[in-house]
């Protein structure tokens, strides 16, 4: 009996602890110190806010609601209103990190958004804070190279070849991420780093369907420090696929114009056949009238 009581106490204690932990989930979540201090290399301007808004509405509103409206979905732990004071008290780096990495029910957006797009969302969230002043990184003395990118496809090994130069000099150790542009989002092909020759290889699934010529719209981003570049182009690296209309051919479900021929013939032949006979009789009634005099 005594033993039992002890267990009960322990369970009660645990439950209380869990409850408290739950309530504080939001404030408990701390980004690593290094991430916490991270600053946006971009100036939060109207364009960024606008783009951030689109991304936010597509990906965040369903849980967090509209910032400042306190209409987030009741969940445990509560997702919180990004417009609220407690939320805004976090550093840019902290918000950036949490969106990127996720935790528990908060999805990880690392694969969905590139860094610059994540900063767009931060810019949008910050636009609800009148008192916010963007802290910008100290750039003095930093030389930022301008990258040029060249894309090609090596069909022998099914790899996307990314070459990165800055003023014709190959750039090593540049992080490259390659995406296929879908209708509603971009699909991560893979991430890689350039070698000493400034070349990075990204695996391409040969079964990926392209257009008739096997072309597909790819987007490659390259970053190293503050240097970044982006290139989007059509590349013949996918499986050539013929696209068919979903309504090709004649079916029972087609529109009347595309009805099966046999059905149309059957219908019209029988309807017109019967009505022809009926009209023959109706007009024949005149003959009855004519025949009133015995011949």
């Amino acid at each position: 009996m005594k033993n039992n009581k002890g267990y009960n106490l322990i369970i009660l204690f645990c439950l209380c602890f869990l409850a408290v932990a739950n309530v504080n989930a939001q404030s408990d979540w701390q980004a690593p110190a290094e991430e916490n201090e991270k600053l946006s290399p971009f100036l939060f301007d109207d364009d960024m806010v606008l783009e951030g808004r689109v991304a936010y509405e597509n990906s965040c509103t369903s849980c967090h609601g509209t910032p400042g409206q306190d209409d987030f979905t009741p969940m445990s732990p509560p997702p919180g209103d990004p417009g609220a004071e407690a939320f805004q008290a976090q550093s840019d780096g902290s918000i950036f990190y949490k969106i990127k990495m996720g935790r528990g029910t908060m999805p990880k957006f690392e694969d969905a958004f590139a860094d610059d797009e994540l900063w767009n969302i931060v810019a949008y969230i910050r636009s609800f804070n009148e008192d916010y002043k963007q802290e910008l990184p100290n750039m003095e003395g930093v030389v930022i190279p301008e990258y040029a990118m060249r894309l090609s496809f090596d069909e022998n090994v099914d790899k996307l070849v990314v070459k990165i130069f800055a003023e014709e000099v190959p750039q090593p150790e540049v992080s490259v991420s390659a995406y296929v542009m879908g209708t509603f989002g971009k699909h991560l092909l893979g991430k890689a780093q350039t070698n000493e020759l400034g070349i990075a290889y990204v695996d391409v699934d040969p079964t990926l369907p392209g257009d008739e010529e096997g072309k597909i719209n790819v987007m490659v981003k390259a970053t190293k420090g503050f240097a970044r570049a982006k290139l989007q182009q059509d590349l013949a690296m996918a499986k050539p696929t013929e696209r068919h209309s979903a309504i090709e051919g004649r079916h029972i479900w087609s529109t009347d114009r595309m009805a099966p021929i046999w059905l149309k013939i059957t219908f019209f032949v029988s309807v017109f056949g019967v009505w022809f006979a009926l009209l023959f009789i109706v007009f024949g009634l005149r003959n009855i009238k004519k025949a009133r005099e015995e011949a």
Partner: peptide, 14 residues
């Protein structure tokens, strides 16, 4: 009645 006159032809047609 279409001028029905009970002629044989009328019956035949009918």
């Amino acid at each position: 009645s279409l001028g029905w006159n009970s002629t044989a032809k009328q019956f035949r047609l009918m």
